Computed example of a mutant assay.
Amino acid sequence: MLSRHGSAPRTAAVLGAAAVALVSMTAVGAVLAYDGGAGIYGCARADVDFGRRLAQDPAVARLAAHLDRTAEPGRSCDDDDSSVAVDLELSTGLERADALRTAAGIVEQAGWARRDRTDDGRWCFEKQVAGRAVSATLTYESELRAEPGSDLGLTLRRHGRCLSPQAASTPVPSSTSTAAPSTTR
């Protein structure tokens, strides 16, 4: 027969073991969930750092300074394929042709080369950043943006792919930029 005093040490030992297990699981979870993690799955620290570098690209700062001073870039990294992206959503108040023409000129001045201008309304640019191919996609009134009220979007993506064609199919006006002529797909 156990007395009340005999079960107290056992209860304390069980509670202590449970507390140690909980602390251990929390510590392991914190390491795995750490911003950039250990690179076991998904985005490594290098991916997170590259996203920060993209967010500091001159095109991002210049677009915000010229067209929407309240715009702040957002960064993301997809855990499935470690694709890094930076998005900037702007409320320009400009007509479509003026917004795209102005933004394209700013992006080109920031060192991006126009790759193509598509029939579905996307303007694509490319640049090497830290030895990696990066694409920049300009869209207007696109369902690809989450910010209500924004009319112009810029997305920088590592892996050099323009966003998939989901924008409106209105033809894109000619650019007044002095860069090399673009091709239309």
Score class of each variant (00 low, 15 high):
residue 1 M to A: 11
residue 6 G to L: 10
residue 6 G to M: 10
residue 8 A to Y: 08
residue 8 A to W: 08
residue 10 R to P: 00
residue 11 T to L: 14
residue 13 A to P: 08
residue 13 A to K: 06
residue 13 A to E: 13
residue 17 A to H: 00
residue 19 A to L: 15
residue 22 L to R: 00
residue 34 Y to R: 12
residue 34 Y to F: 10
residue 38 A to M: 07
residue 40 I to T: 12
residue 44 A to D: 14
residue 46 A to N: 06
residue 49 D to K: 03
residue 49 D to A: 13
residue 49 D to M: 04
residue 51 G to Q: 04
residue 55 A to C: 09
residue 55 A to W: 02
residue 55 A to K: 04
residue 59 A to V: 07
residue 59 A to Y: 04
residue 60 V to S: 05
residue 60 V to T: 08
residue 61 A to G: 10
residue 65 A to W: 01
residue 65 A to D: 14
residue 66 H to Q: 15
residue 68 D to S: 05
residue 77 C to N: 07
residue 81 D to P: 05
residue 83 S to L: 13
residue 85 A to Q: 13
residue 86 V to L: 04
residue 88 L to I: 08
residue 89 E to N: 13
residue 89 E to H: 06
residue 89 E to M: 08
residue 90 L to D: 05
residue 94 L to V: 04
residue 94 L to W: 02
residue 96 R to Y: 03
residue 100 L to C: 02
residue 105 G to K: 02
residue 107 V to P: 09
residue 111 G to S: 09
residue 112 W to F: 14
residue 114 R to D: 02
residue 114 R to T: 12
residue 118 T to L: 11
residue 120 D to R: 04
residue 122 R to D: 15
residue 123 W to V: 13
residue 126 E to H: 11
residue 126 E to S: 14
residue 129 V to L: 03
residue 129 V to T: 06
residue 134 V to K: 00
residue 135 S to R: 01
residue 138 L to K: 06
residue 142 S to G: 10
residue 143 E to G: 14
residue 143 E to C: 01
residue 145 R to G: 14
residue 149 G to Q: 10
residue 151 D to T: 06
residue 153 G to S: 13
residue 159 H to Y: 06
residue 161 R to C: 02
residue 161 R to Y: 12
residue 161 R to H: 13
residue 165 P to G: 07
residue 169 S to A: 13
residue 169 S to E: 11
residue 170 T to N: 08
residue 170 T to C: 02
residue 171 P to D: 05
residue 175 S to Y: 03
residue 177 S to T: 14
residue 179 A to R: 08
residue 183 T to F: 02
